[in-house]
Nucleic acid binder design. Structure first.
Lengths: 198, 198
DNA sequence: GGCTTGACCAGAGGATTCTTCTAGAGCAAT
DNA sequence: ATTGCTCTAGAAGAATCCTCTGGTCAAGCC
C-alpha cells in the first residue's frame, strides 16, 4: 500500500476542490461537493485544511508555487536579458494553456487581497519577486524606474491578455498574441539592459 | 419620509455588504453581518438580491458601472489620441485612490470568471469594450494588432500596478507611478495613431 | 373616502451547511 | 507489546442560509 504520503487524502481533496470550484464557483461550492468528489471524509478535510478557506488557500499556494518554480527556472536558464524577458512572457502564455484550470482558479479566487494573505502565500510571493528583482538589477545598465513599475511593464500586458482569454471573452489565442506581447515586453524593458552608450 | 426609493434598503444593503466584504473577505462574510451593518431585514435582502451571490454580483455591477461611466467620459472629452490614451491611465490611477474600497472589492471578487457572469455584467462589459474599440478604430492610421492585444498594452501595466498597490505589497504611490505608466501606454499605442508616413 | 394593486419590509422557523468531537486505524520507534 | 504520532471516519451539535407568511405604505381608481 506504499507509504503514507502517497495514499494521503490531502492531494485528493485539493484535486476535488479545484474541480468543484471551477464547476460551481468558490462561493457556491459546498464541503459536501468536495468530499463526495474526492472520496475523503469530513475529518480529513478539517485535519488537513481547517475549513473552506484553508482549503482554497492551500490550493492557491499549490497552483501558484508550481507556476513560480517553472517560471523562474526558465528565467534562470536564459543566456541574456532579451531571452529572459521574452521567456517569462512566453512561459506565462504556454502555462495558461497547459494548466487552464489552475490558471482560472488563480484568477478567480482572490479573497486574500482583502483579508491578510497566509504566511505561506506571502512568503511565496516575496521569494518570487525577490528573485525577479535580483535578476533585473544584476543586469541593468541604467537607473531603473521603481521596480513595481518595471514588473508591471514586463508582465502587465500578458496578465491582462490572459485574464481576457481565460474568461473566454476573446477569440484570439495565446499563440497568436505571443509575438505581440513578447515584443512589447522587450520594447519596454530592453533599454534598461543595454549599456549606456550615450 | 420622502419617496419610497430614497428610503430603500437596497442601497443600505449594498453599502453594508461592501464594508463587510472588505472587513472579512467575501467567503467569510455572513448574511447576519450584512444585515446588522445595514439595518435591513432578511426579507429585504432576499427580495432585492436573492442571496449572497446576487448581492455580491449587484455590488460588483454597481462599482464597475461607476468606473466605466467616468472612464469613458474622460476618453470622450479628449481632443486627440495622445490625450485620450493618457487620460484613461490617469483616470484609473486616480479612481483607485478616490475609491479604494470599491477598487479592492472589484479585484477581490472574481467568482464570475468561473460561473457565467450575470447578463447585466456581461452587457456592461460589452458596451464599455465596444466604446473603447470604436474609439481606437476611429483614430487608427495603421493596421491594428488584434484588439485584445492593443487593450492589454494600453491598460495592462496600469492594472498590474494597481493590483500590487491595492494589496499593499508596494511602497510607491499611484501618483509616483503615473508618469511611467502614462508614458509607457503612449509609447506602446502612439504608433498606431500616427499617419503612415513611410 | 374606500378599495385594489404592487413594491417593499419584517422576522420566525425549517432546511442546509459547517465545524467540532470522539473513536479508531496504520505505522514507527522503543 | 506498548506508546505516540499522523491520518481517517462519521455522528452530532452549531451556525448559517433561505423560504414563507404576514404585514406596511404609496399610488391609482371608483
Amino acid at each position: 500500500m506504499a507509504t503514507r504520503q502517497e495514499t494521503s487524502k490531502r492531494q485528493a481533496l485539493l484535486d476535488g476542490a479545484l474541480a468543484c470550484f471551477l464547476e460551481h464557483g468558490v462561493v457556491e461550492t459546498t464541503m459536501e461537493h468536495v468530499l463526495s468528489r474526492s472520496g475523503a471524509s469530513v475529518g480529513s478535510l478539517y485535519h488537513h485544511f481547517g475549513g473552506k478557506e484553508g482549503l482554497a488557500d492551500a490550493l492557491y499556494v499549490e497552483c501558484l508555487g508550481g507556476y513560480h518554480t517553472a517560471a523562474f527556472a526558465r528565467l534562470d536558464a536564459a543566456p541574456d536579458a532579451e531571452t529572459g524577458v521574452r521567456a517569462i512572457v512566453e512561459h506565462h502564455l504556454s502555462w495558461i494553456v497547459a494548466h487552464t484550470d489552475r490558471a482560472k482558479f488563480l484568477l478567480a479566487y482572490r479573497d486574500h487581497e482583502i483579508r491578510p494573505a497566509s504566511d505561506e502565500l506571502r512568503s511565496l510571493n516575496r521569494v518570487f519577486y525577490g528573485q525577479i528583482e535580483r535578476w533585473i538589477t544584476d543586469r541593468a545598465h541604467v537607473e531603473l524606474p521603481p521596480l513595481p513599475v518595471v514588473i508591471s511593464q514586463w508582465l502587465g500586458p500578458t496578465h491582462s491578455f490572459s485574464r481576457h482569454w481565460l474568461s473566454a471573452q476573446v477569440r484570439i489565442t495565446p499563440a497568436d498574441a505571443r509575438p505581440f506581447l513578447s515584443d512589447s515586453a522587450w520594447h519596454a524593458l530592453g533599454p534598461l539592459f543595454r549599456p549606456t552608450t550615450g
